[in-house]
Nucleic acid binder design. Structure first.
Lengths: 198, 198
DNA sequence: ACCTGAACACCGTTCAAGT
DNA sequence: ACCTGAACACCGTTCAAGT
């Protein structure tokens, strides 16, 4: 599918690009070190000069997905009241970023397991909530909870239409459309945060 | 570690028991069909008479964890106002059930991917919220969102102290204690639901 | 009905040796 | 510095054949 004869020099970036190409075309289950090496025209062992192991490669992929979003600077300078819109923007943006790659949510969920309470959308959310008037403890708790919802929802969506493609679903199991579930869940969450504001 | 000479008859239940024994002692990464077979005093191929494949074994384990909880009958007969306490009870009970087995949250998260919007704590929550006065759409969205938070939080907890046991954390990365995060997140969620009640 | 034995087609990772 | 070749120690799954 790709040419793999001209063994031009590898790099972390090229390995990552190749990994995303396999991910999007064949899914996380088919992303093996040997297959990735083959796609890059290289022996499997050669990858270990650029990444210590498969887990750190997956972590780098997860970080690229999570960091691909703009840092979401407050574009509304009159601040203060627009925290809910900012929260909606960050959440939807991250949700979209997860859905932009096949198995993206599962990948990020696994990557988050390595460095639990860190990474990009988390920090922005905590600062945003603190700026809105929430205390530190509630801000980190709320941001973490919201992120778990976003990732979990995206993972469920992707698992769902992966089953559909394999002909698993009987038309549609109960004809649930999980589209509005995301917005509804987000609004419930925002209301919960608003109730804790001074 | 266990005797494996008396080749007494297997069954789905015995295979499941052996799988949980390996899970709790060595973790999900070491739960392989070959190792499980060895523990049970059987050849690896023999397991495939009882389970079609490894995924369906993992799904059965996930279901046992999720169903282990009592169905949470409303123990407060004056109903109506105690929905928040019921929601707290179901959520904490499920959270505890996930933490009761090593890698329990990861296992249930993977199992949920197979049959997305089904299973036990979900149905109880939806009925509870509907009984409290929430409409159908909001009830399913809220229950799903809350469950994603509970599973994600438990998974993060387990990943966190799996890292600690491997000596990964530098004392404690930022000295975050995720204990109160769960209760706080739960309360924020309950407030959000309360705001949507008629 | 229930399980063995043996094979098939893979894995991630390591590491001397090459260039 | 960067990669090859080849090995090590595994995997999940299938399936004839046994009992």
């Amino acid at each position: 599918m790709m040419r793999y004869g001209q063994a031009m020099r590898l790099s972390r970036e090229k390995v990552l690009d190749g990994a995303f190409a396999i991910l999007d075309r064949y899914g996380l289950g088919d992303l093996t070190m040997r297959r990735l090496a083959g796609e890059l025209g290289v022996q499997a062992g050669g990858l270990y000069w650029h990444f210590a192991n498969k887990q750190s490669l997956l972590a780098a992929m997860a970080e690229r997905i999570a960091t691909g979003q703009p840092p979401s600077v407050a574009r509304d300078p009159e601040a203060a009241r627009a925290w809910a819109d900012e929260l909606r923007a960050i959440s939807s943006g991250f949700h979209d970023a997860l859905l932009a790659h096949r198995d993206g949510a599962e990948l990020v969920a696994a990557g988050n397991a390595l460095h639990p309470g860190s990474g990009e959308p988390l920090e922005s959310m905590i600062k945003l909530l603190q700026g809105a008037g929430l205390d530190t403890a509630a801000s980190t708790a709320a941001a973490g909870a919201l992120l778990h919802f976003v990732i979990g929802h995206a993972a469920e969506l992707q698992a769902h239409d992966q089953l559909r493609q394999l002909g698993g679903l009987p038309d549609d199991h109960e004809s649930i459309d999980p589209g509005p579930d995301f917005e509804l869940g987000l609004e419930i969450f925002i209301d919960g945060v608003a109730a804790r504001l001074p």
